[in-house]
Simulated assay, not measured.
Amino acid sequence: MTPCASRSLYPAQTATIQNWPAKNQGDALDYSLYLAPFCCDQGETVTRLTVDVPDSTGLTLLWSALTPDRATIGLQGGTVGQQAITLTLETSLGRRYVRTVQIAVLADSGSVDGVQASLTPPDGAEVQPDALTLPDGRILTL
């Protein structure tokens, strides 16, 4: 899987709240944040990603993953309205960035929120944190 470019952000240099494109409640979609703006020195990389998805959002974090150029998360469900997710990035040189991203969740009819999505992480991505994977590459969730 290649992360969808239409749901990817180039982050602002300042700690401002940014928005990902809206999703319907029944969607299982990937959202990405480009990492280059966070790496200031030659050879610096983002080594850890922590994602905070508050219960009040109704969103389910299917997985989070790092590739050399972006942090990508898989999301499903959601409570209708504007929801906030916080991403914390740590770099190889000890820098720590906390960014809040908004996502509008839209009502849909015929939603399949009760069905677990089979959206897989990007090819070659390091899944954060270590997770059990099924033989077909999907992340095991309970």
Rank of each mutant, 00 (worst) to 15 (best):
P54S: 03
Q42V: 03
Q102D: 13
A131P: 00
D69N: 12
L33H: 00
G94S: 11
S92I: 11
L33N: 02
A28R: 05
S6Q: 14
L75R: 02
D123V: 12
T50G: 02
T45I: 15
S92L: 09
D27Q: 06
R48V: 01
T72S: 14
T14I: 06
Q18H: 05
D123T: 06
D27S: 07
G94Y: 04
V98P: 02
G137M: 12
A125V: 08
N19R: 15
A12H: 08
G94R: 10
T14Q: 13
G137C: 08
L87N: 01
T88M: 12
L132W: 10
G58T: 03
L142F: 13
W20M: 05
Q13S: 14
L33D: 00
Q13T: 04
G77V: 03
S92N: 10
Q102L: 15
A104N: 13
D108F: 04
L87C: 00
I139C: 14
R95S: 15
L61N: 04
T133Q: 12
T86A: 12
L66K: 13
D27I: 05
Y34H: 15
G114V: 07
P54T: 02
V51S: 01
R96S: 15
A28N: 09
G114E: 06
T100E: 13
P3H: 05
S8E: 13
R7V: 01
D113N: 15
I139G: 04
T91G: 07
T120Q: 15
L9A: 07
A71N: 06
G110D: 10
G137V: 03
D30G: 14
P11H: 09
I139M: 06
L89G: 01
V101Q: 14
V46I: 08
V105P: 01
L89C: 04
T86P: 03
T72N: 01
D69A: 11
R70K: 08
L119P: 07
I73R: 00
T50Y: 10
L33C: 10
A107K: 08
L59E: 08
P37K: 08
T79L: 11
V98C: 09
P122N: 09
R99G: 04
I139L: 10
I139D: 01
T14V: 08
L142T: 04
V53D: 00
D123M: 05
V51T: 15
L132D: 05
A36G: 10
W63M: 04
I85L: 10
S109C: 08
A65I: 04
L89N: 00
P54I: 03
S118R: 12
Q42K: 03
G74S: 14
Q25D: 02
D41T: 12
T16L: 08
Y31E: 04
Y34E: 07
M1P: 09
A104G: 03
L87K: 01
T141F: 12
G26K: 05
L142Q: 12
T72V: 11
P54K: 02
G110Y: 11
T141A: 09
D113T: 13
V46E: 13
D55L: 09
Y97L: 06
P11Q: 02
S8C: 11
